[in-house]
Protein backbone atom coordinates (compact mmCIF):
# COMPACT_ATOMS: atom_id res chain seq x y z
CA UNK A 1 0.00 0.00 0.00
CA UNK A 2 1.49 3.31 -1.09
CA UNK A 3 0.82 6.68 0.52
CA UNK A 4 -2.16 8.85 -0.38
CA UNK A 5 -2.28 10.66 -3.70
CA UNK A 6 -0.89 14.18 -3.64
CA UNK A 7 -2.77 17.03 -5.26
CA UNK A 8 0.31 17.90 -7.34
CA UNK A 9 0.47 14.39 -8.76
CA UNK A 10 -3.16 14.52 -9.84
CA UNK A 11 -2.69 18.01 -11.26
CA UNK A 12 0.23 16.96 -13.41
CA UNK A 13 -1.72 13.98 -14.76
CA UNK A 14 -5.22 15.41 -15.19
CA UNK A 15 -4.83 19.23 -15.23
CA UNK A 16 -5.31 19.25 -19.00
CA UNK A 17 -8.86 17.90 -18.67
CA UNK A 18 -10.19 20.53 -16.27
CA UNK A 19 -9.97 21.97 -12.80
CA UNK A 20 -8.49 19.84 -10.01
CA UNK A 21 -9.32 20.53 -6.38
CA UNK A 22 -8.75 18.87 -3.04
CA UNK A 23 -12.16 18.47 -1.38
CA UNK A 24 -10.79 17.19 1.93
CA UNK A 25 -8.06 14.77 2.98
CA UNK A 26 -7.96 11.83 0.55
CA UNK A 27 -10.75 13.20 -1.67
CA UNK A 28 -9.74 14.90 -4.93
CA UNK A 29 -12.22 16.15 -7.51
CA UNK A 30 -11.60 16.81 -11.18
CA UNK A 31 -14.16 18.65 -13.31
CA UNK A 32 -14.08 17.86 -16.99
CA UNK A 33 -16.29 17.54 -20.07
CA UNK A 34 -18.11 14.41 -21.36
CA UNK A 35 -15.87 13.87 -24.40
CA UNK A 36 -12.73 13.69 -22.31
CA UNK A 37 -13.96 11.25 -19.68
CA UNK A 38 -12.62 8.16 -21.36
CA UNK A 39 -9.20 9.69 -21.79
CA UNK A 40 -9.20 11.00 -18.21
CA UNK A 41 -10.16 7.59 -16.82
CA UNK A 42 -7.50 5.96 -18.92
CA UNK A 43 -4.83 8.35 -17.67
CA UNK A 44 -6.00 8.05 -14.08
CA UNK A 45 -5.66 4.31 -14.41
CA UNK A 46 -2.26 4.38 -16.04
CA UNK A 47 -0.55 7.20 -14.16
CA UNK A 48 -2.32 7.34 -10.80
CA UNK A 49 -3.13 3.63 -10.33
CA UNK A 50 -6.83 4.44 -9.94
CA UNK A 51 -8.08 1.05 -11.08
CA UNK A 52 -11.04 0.52 -8.75
CA UNK A 53 -14.32 2.16 -9.76
CA UNK A 54 -16.33 2.73 -6.59
CA UNK A 55 -19.43 4.24 -8.07
CA UNK A 56 -20.86 6.35 -10.85
CA UNK A 57 -23.15 8.83 -9.13
CA UNK A 58 -25.78 10.45 -11.28
CA UNK A 59 -27.73 13.55 -10.40
CA UNK A 60 -30.29 15.84 -11.92
CA UNK A 61 -29.73 19.42 -10.84
CA UNK A 62 -32.70 20.76 -12.78
CA UNK A 63 -30.63 22.26 -15.58
CA UNK A 64 -28.40 19.36 -16.55
CA UNK A 65 -27.39 15.88 -15.53
CA UNK A 66 -24.24 15.37 -13.55
CA UNK A 67 -22.18 12.21 -13.52
CA UNK A 68 -19.38 11.61 -11.06
CA UNK A 69 -16.97 8.71 -11.46
CA UNK A 70 -15.45 7.82 -8.10
CA UNK A 71 -12.17 5.97 -8.45
CA UNK A 72 -9.68 4.62 -6.00
CA UNK A 73 -6.60 2.43 -6.01
CA UNK A 74 -3.89 1.05 -3.74
CA UNK A 75 -3.27 4.59 -2.43
CA UNK A 76 -6.88 4.63 -1.10
CA UNK A 77 -7.48 8.21 -2.19
CA UNK A 78 -10.86 8.80 -3.82
CA UNK A 79 -10.54 10.57 -7.13
CA UNK A 80 -13.81 11.98 -8.43
CA UNK A 81 -14.14 12.82 -12.11
CA UNK A 82 -17.22 14.99 -12.61
CA UNK A 83 -18.99 15.96 -15.81
CA UNK A 84 -22.22 17.66 -16.81
CA UNK A 85 -24.51 16.46 -19.58
CA UNK A 86 -27.14 18.61 -21.33
CA UNK A 87 -30.73 17.65 -20.55
CA UNK A 88 -31.81 17.79 -24.18
CA UNK A 89 -29.40 15.15 -25.40
CA UNK A 90 -28.16 13.01 -22.50
CA UNK A 91 -25.59 10.88 -24.31
CA UNK A 92 -22.27 9.66 -23.13
CA UNK A 93 -19.65 7.26 -24.44
CA UNK A 94 -19.55 4.09 -22.34
CA UNK A 95 -16.61 3.36 -20.08
CA UNK A 96 -17.41 -0.29 -19.48
CA UNK A 97 -14.55 -1.44 -21.70
CA UNK A 98 -12.00 0.50 -19.63
CA UNK A 99 -13.53 -0.36 -16.26
CA UNK A 100 -15.67 -3.53 -16.37
CA UNK A 101 -17.70 -2.72 -13.20
CA UNK A 102 -19.00 0.42 -14.93
CA UNK A 103 -21.27 -1.75 -17.06
CA UNK A 104 -23.77 -2.49 -14.32
CA UNK A 105 -23.76 1.08 -12.95
CA UNK A 106 -24.36 2.48 -16.42
CA UNK A 107 -27.37 0.21 -16.91
CA UNK A 108 -28.77 1.47 -13.63
CA UNK A 109 -28.30 5.12 -14.60
CA UNK A 110 -29.81 4.46 -18.02
CA UNK A 111 -32.87 2.99 -16.33
CA UNK A 112 -33.42 5.69 -13.73
CA UNK A 113 -32.26 8.81 -15.59
CA UNK A 114 -32.48 7.91 -19.25
CA UNK A 115 -28.85 8.74 -19.94
CA UNK A 116 -27.73 6.74 -22.97
CA UNK A 117 -24.26 5.25 -22.89
CA UNK A 118 -23.23 4.77 -26.49
CA UNK A 119 -21.27 1.61 -27.16
CA UNK A 120 -22.49 -0.22 -24.07
CA UNK A 121 -22.73 -3.93 -24.96
CA UNK A 122 -25.95 -4.64 -23.08
CA UNK A 123 -27.84 -1.45 -22.23
CA UNK A 124 -31.11 -2.94 -21.05
CA UNK A 125 -33.60 -2.39 -18.26
CA UNK A 126 -32.27 -3.61 -14.94
CA UNK A 127 -33.97 -1.83 -12.05
CA UNK A 128 -37.52 -0.96 -13.03
CA UNK A 129 -40.46 -3.28 -13.53
CA UNK A 130 -40.99 -4.67 -17.03
CA UNK A 131 -44.39 -2.93 -17.26
CA UNK A 132 -42.85 0.45 -16.48
CA UNK A 133 -43.78 2.88 -19.28
CA UNK A 134 -40.98 3.67 -21.71
CA UNK A 135 -39.55 7.15 -21.61
CA UNK A 136 -40.37 7.81 -17.95
CA UNK A 137 -37.34 8.22 -15.77
CA UNK A 138 -38.29 8.38 -12.09
CA UNK A 139 -35.12 9.89 -10.72
CA UNK A 140 -35.41 13.02 -12.87
CA UNK A 141 -36.46 16.01 -10.82
CA UNK A 142 -39.41 16.88 -13.05
CA UNK A 143 -40.89 13.38 -12.85
CA UNK A 144 -43.96 13.00 -10.64
CA UNK A 145 -45.49 9.67 -9.62
CA UNK A 146 -48.91 8.91 -11.04
CA UNK A 147 -51.66 7.28 -8.97
CA UNK A 148 -52.44 3.69 -9.90
CA UNK A 149 -55.52 1.55 -9.86
CA UNK A 150 -56.08 -1.21 -7.35
CA UNK A 151 -55.61 -4.97 -7.97
CA UNK A 152 -56.41 -6.80 -11.11
CA UNK A 153 -55.20 -4.05 -13.38
CA UNK A 154 -51.51 -4.73 -13.35
CA UNK A 155 -49.58 -2.11 -15.22
CA UNK A 156 -52.50 0.17 -16.06
CA UNK A 157 -52.28 3.83 -15.28
CA UNK A 158 -55.21 5.97 -14.22
CA UNK A 159 -55.72 9.32 -15.83
Amino acid sequence: MSGPLELEQVKSALERFGTVEQVRSNRIKVKTVPDKVREALFRAQALLACDHLIQISAMDNGLSFELIYHLTGPHRTVLAIAIELPRERPEMPTTSDILPPAGIYERQIYDLFGIVFTGHPNLKRIILSEDWPEGEYPMRKDWKPKPRTKPGSVGEEVK
Partner: peptide, 15 residues
Protein backbone atom coordinates in the same frame (compact mmCIF):
# COMPACT_ATOMS: atom_id res chain seq x y z
CA UNK B 1 -45.83 4.04 1.62
CA UNK B 2 -46.23 6.18 -1.46
CA UNK B 3 -42.94 5.30 -3.16
CA UNK B 4 -43.11 5.20 -6.92
CA UNK B 5 -42.31 1.53 -7.31
CA UNK B 6 -44.57 0.33 -4.47
CA UNK B 7 -48.27 -0.54 -4.76
CA UNK B 8 -50.49 1.57 -2.51
CA UNK B 9 -52.12 -0.08 0.46
CA UNK B 10 -49.99 -3.08 1.36
CA UNK B 11 -50.64 -6.74 0.65
CA UNK B 12 -54.40 -6.53 1.08
CA UNK B 13 -54.76 -4.40 -2.02
CA UNK B 14 -53.50 -7.35 -4.08
CA UNK B 15 -54.71 -10.51 -2.34
Amino acid sequence: QGLYHVVDGGVESVI
